[in-house]
């Protein structure tokens, strides 16, 4: 340890060190699903239970005479960026990359070579198995520490990690079915729907007719109450 002391430099500047060197920005980028490439294309990273998938897109980058050349260049840049992002994100296990389809075997070979070269900087043990029958590049990277996302993030409480919520309209239709069911089962004077702002908006606007029809059908008034604290999928039906 003493031998490295001369190499240490105590930073005392006013501007935070990580800010100065753009590390804060890189951390934010390493948490995002989408990573933009300089060539105009972009990558989409998805970490699932079984594996991590990376999708390479041209991002509608057209207008160059030679389409094959554009794809090739985008894939080359993607190969370098993916290798670096895997390190930053510390992703382990199976990693599958869907490069943009290339017809030329020569291009395929060159992209794979570039990928291997970029990955050779990695200290973690990895194996690259090359293109699969479907044209995906298959590799594994040893899991050492937890991934960056696992250290810094938690599952989304709104969607429980699915990444999607039911649309306001889907929730509206669920509520209509539930209202009918409740009205048949219990004898209430009035029914009140407590829902998220987005869901109540749909009831007040596009689905107002459907709600009025249901109210006539069950012969009871239905009132609406928007609850700003409710998540989109959340609702309650109150018997009055």
């Amino acid at each position: 340890m003493p031998t490295v002391t001369p190499l240490l430099n105590h930073y005392i500047g006013d501007r935070p060190l990580f800010d100065l060197h753009g590390v804060e920005d890189e951390i934010q980028k390493a948490l995002a699903r989408r990573v933009d490439l300089k060539s105009g294309g972009y990558l989409i990273f998805d970490q699932t239970e079984a594996m991590t998938t990376v999708d390479v897109n041209t991002g509608g980058f057209v207008g160059v005479r030679n389409f094959d050349e554009t794809v090739f260049k985008t894939n080359l840049e993607a190969a370098q960026t993916i290798a670096r992002q895997l390190r930053l994100r510390n992703l382990g296990g199976i990693i599958i990359t869907d490069f943009i389809d290339m017809d030329s075997e020569e291009h395929k070979g060159a992209v794979l070579e570039e990928f291997n070269k970029a990955l050779s900087r990695d200290h973690t043990r990895l194996t690259v198995n090359g293109f699969t029958a479907l044209g995906l590049v298959e590799m594994t990277r040893k899991r050492t520490r937890e991934s960056l996302a696992h250290i810094l993030c938690e599952e989304c409480p709104t969607c429980q990690g699915r990444g999607e919520v039911k649309t306001a309209r889907t929730v509206c239709y669920e509520i209509l079915r539930e209202l009918l069911h409740e009205a048949r089962q219990f004898n209430a004077r009035e029914l009140r729907v407590l829902g998220s702002v987005a869901v109540i908006d749909v009831f007040l606007d596009e689905e107002s007719q459907g709600l009025a029809m249901l109210s006539d059908f069950i012969g009871k008034p239905i009132s609406l109450q928007a609850e700003p604290s409710y998540a989109q999928e959340q609702y309650d039906i109150v018997l009055m």
Binding site: L17, F18, L88, R121, L152
Partner: peptide, 26 residues
């Protein structure tokens, strides 16, 4: 370059190569 940002709550380490972050340890 290895940048180390130390606070009582966390230690963050960034390994830089040619001015670009290559590895993050938190």
């Amino acid at each position: 370059d290895i940048l180390i940002n130390f606070t009582p709550q966390e230690t963050r380490v960034a390994v830089m190569h040619q001015g670009v972050v290559q590895e993050l340890h938190i």
